[in-house]
Write a protein that binds this DNA or RNA. Structure first.
Lengths: 185, 185
DNA sequence: GTCGTGATAGACCGACCAGTCTATCTATCA
DNA sequence: TGATAGATAGACTGGTCGGTCTATCACGAC
């Protein structure tokens, strides 16, 4: 066979949905997802039970990927302080990219107004894991109040993502980095 | 007449839409808006041309109100530094309220994916006015780099609103206030 | 009185939505 | 060879969407 083995429909759906949810928002229709993934309608309901299940599965996978991205962004140095500041340098690259569309977790929370929607549990879990990652780094730094500093860094990160999504041409991550440096001391 | 004169349909629509857009998101259906405002369907299209026009009109009015809120939040003192820090105290009250649903401008940007949607011009205008307000205060404070500091305060404000909308029970405005104090020096 | 204006109520339209269903095809395995 | 499982294509349902339309009503000006 000349063609490489194609992933199964479940995998194709996850990949296509992750991309479309990010590019066009979590409100994209099921038809668009199926077309993009080249998957039969029935397969979606077999594998995920419905659109809500697909949304939750995509968020779960994205959370793993994004946390891996954060870990890698920290990996530029062994010095705890440089690691955290380097994170904002990576955020600067991320946010400056034309393809950047903002935080997918916040977009999910806003799109699905129903507080019982399974998406909210996933976004909450992601934020918890991100927070724990920040606390871990701050403890490694020997920070006096790691929990409070993590809250501040988290706020700076969220602020950077919002500014990056709405204010084209600026460099919010640089402003956030300077503030982050103050948080660390 | 015992009943006070009722505002016209245009006014009722604006009021109802402003409330419902905030409480349920800008994706609420036209039917719900008409029912809440007790207005005939046709009146909406006579006055605003369509839902998009109503959305833009609501954002324009909300921008005036919100900027007045910011002005009032600054009015607690004549000392430039206390004025800006007091703003974050007011944000703390705003965000701690159970009714707080996040930033309506960012929610509008996320809901209307089409970049040509008239909502985007309104949200952009609001952010510009907010930024000018911050620059004005920083200049009154005699800050060395008012534009840059305004960007940082703006980032702290947006971050506070996101955290307040997603992290229940925390006090992000306090964390932001401490960072704002560092920005001012 | 009558005309015009601006409002009301609500039927109606085509488009799209998520989800269900039938029928068909294609592998793998016995 | 035949049975089974998993996938495909796509018709179809009921509901909601934004928007258009007709018909009626209330009121002020002339």
């Amino acid at each position: 066979m000349a063609t490489t083995t194609q992933p199964g429909p479940r995998e194709r759906l996850l990949t296509a949905a992750q991309e479309l949810f990010y590019a066009r928002g979590p409100a994209v229709g099921v038809d668009a997802l199926l077309k993009e993934a080249n998957v039969a309608r029935r397969s979606l309901y077999e594998h995920f039970g419905g659109k809500d299940g697909l949304v939750a599965a995509v968020l779960r996978r994205a959370a793993d990927e994004d946390l891996a991205w954060y870990e890698q962004a920290l990996a530029g140095s062994t010095d705890p302080r440089r690691r955290l500041l380097g994170l904002f340098d990576r955020l600067d690259e991320l946010v400056s990219n034309d393809e950047f569309r903002g935080c997918r977790y916040f977009a999910s929370d806003l799109t699905f107004a129903d507080p019982d929607h399974p998406a909210h549990a996933e976004t909450e879990a992601f934020r918890q894991r991100l927070r724990e990652l920040l606390v871990r780094e701050l403890k490694a730094l020997g920070h006096r109040r790691p929990a409070r500093a993590a809250e501040q860094l988290h706020l700076l990160i969220e602020g950077t993502l919002v500014m990056g999504a709405t204010q084209d041409g600026q460099r919010p991550a640089r402003a956030a980095r300077d503030l982050a440096a103050l948080v660390l001391d």
